[in-house]
Nucleic acid binder design. Structure first.
Lengths: 411, 411
DNA sequence: ACCCTTTTTTTCGAGCTTCGAAAAAATGAA
DNA sequence: TTCATTTTTTCGAAGCTCGAAAAAAAGGGT
């Protein structure tokens, strides 16, 4: 049972809507916010006056807009950059990064390291991250904005409370409670997010008109990750981060997957699977670990130049992705798909068989052409999505809540 | 952008919450409603007084409850049966039924027909339904409650606006705009719902503690249907009724499916697929239509008594269901599954291979034992779900809205 | 310069709504 | 019959949003 709407919730919700309208971009005027939210001008006026007083929003100085209309000019409102800072940490194979982002979304400090994540102990990994975070915090210096939230975007499966990493291909260790560690260390609320989910969040924020309602992001790499936006909401499983697209079954009892099971999509479309087939190895052969990008590039070039096993390997990868997407579309209805990750450098090789496979499924029946997008460099998207997740959380909770009345200091 | 919460929305939402608390069952007192909704006693008192005056709720006479406590006794509130009637129509292969249900959910009139739906024209089908509906309306007679809503629960795919049937196995005709037809004929708002979705709605209403958050219903019949409840909400696709579980791909380019494609789950687990394999036919053989239950029962008995092709056919059906459920679980996380329909009479034959297949998938990794339930007779569930859908729609829209002030007649 | 027009923003009182406290109601226990 | 207990209603206070009117801030025209 949802809880009833109390009177003070009303204000909180409407404040949240105003903040969301401003974060939505375009530095809207009060009138535009009123139109976007459906609230009256007078309400928006009251709320925005409060938010400006509290330092959440700020009046943006009039830019040199060529269009000079008659009448009182609109006053553009923006997010106050000093309202808060958040820290977005990303953790991928042999790559750590941390960035401090202000309330308006601008990156203030950004650093990264390239340690060998696979060979580190869990403690070493935690300490390396802590050192990196410490470093960016120091470089942030005496920024007057308080650090209010932190997200860790990780390639792997998180628990549903978004506090721990359950499993990840970047480290042999499992069940690492990152949130606990960082919260005690840095005294900041932390959530652990799946990297593909953050990419989906970032793409939705970038192109709400295209991806605002539905979006599937598919990460092509050693493993196959997925992020899913349905009806405007990030879809996560009820017990974990969900969306384990790479481990949907493509061929029952088929090729050996890294996860120990057989026939997963990843066992056909992951880098190691493509390599294994191209080299003519048995499909039950143990997957190779950590394939460098050069090998994949060479294989892609070989596939482009000849008819051999290489070309077939990419074709099979596309089929696995296509049939799985087709099954997904049968459940969710077709949605735009954004492919991300280094694996997209060979997208020309797999796209035809993806489309061909989808067309042979129920989900692909009605659409001649699907909306595919390519984004090779996923790192900025992951950071952006992590920051956005942290910032909108602040919007909806911390800043949407009316602050307690300030006691006037009359001394 | 969601629309802002206006002041009058507040009342509407809280009225909806009170009605929902009462429909939730248990004939709660005002105090219990306050506890369930989180609203104050005084608010509940005001709202429930209004709703009683309007004839939406009613005071339930004290039942002989043995527990006599000290203090003023609680007054139980219930839904006023005469607040409205709804009509729940169900449409399955060779079977039409219509029932009039009062606002409290009690069936008042119920009739059914057994025409041959496959050989009827679309007009004949519409007219047969109209005659049936007319008949129950006549039998309802001068019931003082107004008929405010109608649902058609149909085996098949509906459009996302829930007005038309896009495709169904029970009729060769497609794109039938049922809602339009019935709305002009009977002057009642109509929605067209998928039968499996209605089963899910009914089971959730019956066992909220078990199925309130997540539930998958799988209909075993000629085709394989699915209804999905995720986070308490009925899941439907964004363009259609969605959840075309039966047409997820089990084996790429595999057995011939009724839908014209190949390798769908249904092409292994549907009745025709089981029969085809048991008879040793080629799996690309054209599916047989409309297999009677006796044939399936005989085949199930043959499978129970021998090791032949029959047993293998059921085993393969279970594998298709299990792998597909495993893929589903990889996306959604494991959820309780309720199998419904006549096909469940052979559930003892397919269950082991379902469990075995799930255990070989990513979704089945963490759960040794899944929560399976069996419900052979789906017809009452479909009716119940359809009625519930109509009634809760009325709750949330018609009755939650504050009525215009009555002008007092002082003549 | 000056006034008019146009558009945006703020102000102000009215009307709802919810809430807490107190009162009223209804019953069992003594 | 009176007291204790629990539920329900009543009533005033406080908060929120809204519409209308006023104020503010520009350009346009003479």
């Amino acid at each position: 049972m949802t809880v009833g709407v109390r009177h003070d919730d009303l204000r909180r919700r409407n404040r949240a809507m105003v903040i969301a309208a401003v974060r939505g971009g375009g530095q809207p005027s009060r009138t535009e916010i009123a139109a976007a939210t459906g609230l009256s001008n007078s309400t928006i006026s009251t709320i925005s006056a409060d938010l400006i007083t509290e330092g959440v929003l700020t009046v943006v100085p009039a830019i040199e807009n060529g269009i000079l209309k008659r009448g009182r000019p609109q006053v553009a409102l923006g997010l106050h950059p000093r309202a808060a800072n958040v820290i977005a940490v990303t953790l991928s194979l042999n790559s750590l990064s941390a960035a401090i982002i202000d309330y308006s979304g601008k990156v203030i400090v950004h650093e990264f390291r390239r340690p060998s994540t696979l060979t580190m102990s869990a403690d070493e990994l935690l300490n390396a991250l802590a050192e990196l975070v410490q470093s960016v915090i120091l470089r942030m210096g005496q920024d007057l904005a308080p650090l209010l939230r932190m997200t860790l975007a990780i390639q792997g499966i998180t628990d549903s409370s978004k506090r721990a990493l359950l499993w990840s291909p970047i480290t042999p260790h499992s069940n690492i409670d990152f949130a606990d560690f960082f919260e005690t260390r840095f005294r900041v609320p932390v959530t652990v997010e799946n990297d593909c989910n953050m990419i989906a969040v970032a793409l939705r924020a970038r192109s709400p008109e295209r991806y605002g309602k539905n979006l599937i992001t598919v990460m092509l790499s050693d493993g196959i990750g997925m992020g899913l936006i349905q009806r405007g909401e990030l879809f996560t499983g009820s017990r974990s981060s969900g969306g384990e697209f790479g481990h949907m079954i493509h061929i029952p009892d088929g090729a050996q997957c890294r996860c120990g099971r057989r026939g997963c999509v990843e066992a056909y479309a992951g880098n190691y699977a493509i390599l294994r087939h191209a080299r003519g190895e048995c499909e039950t052969a143990q997957p190779a670990a950590d394939i460098d990008h050069l090998t994949m590039t060479e294989m892609a070039n070989a596939a482009r130049n000849g008819e051999g096993l290489e070309r077939d390997a990419f074709k099979r990868a596309g089929e696995a992705l296509g049939f799985a997407l087709g099954s997904l579309f049968a459940l969710f209805d077709p949605a735009p798909v954004a492919f991300v990750g280094l694996g997209t450098s060979a997208f020309d090789l797999i796209e035809p068989s993806i489309r061909n496979a989808i067309a042979r499924t129920a989900g692909g029946q009605h659409n001649a052409e699907f909306d595919f997008a390519i984004q090779a460099d996923e790192a900025p998207l992951i950071r952006e999505g992590g920051a956005y997740q942290a910032l909108t959380y602040l919007d909806q909770t911390v800043f949407a809540a009316s602050p307690p009345l300030q006691v006037l200091d009359l001394a």
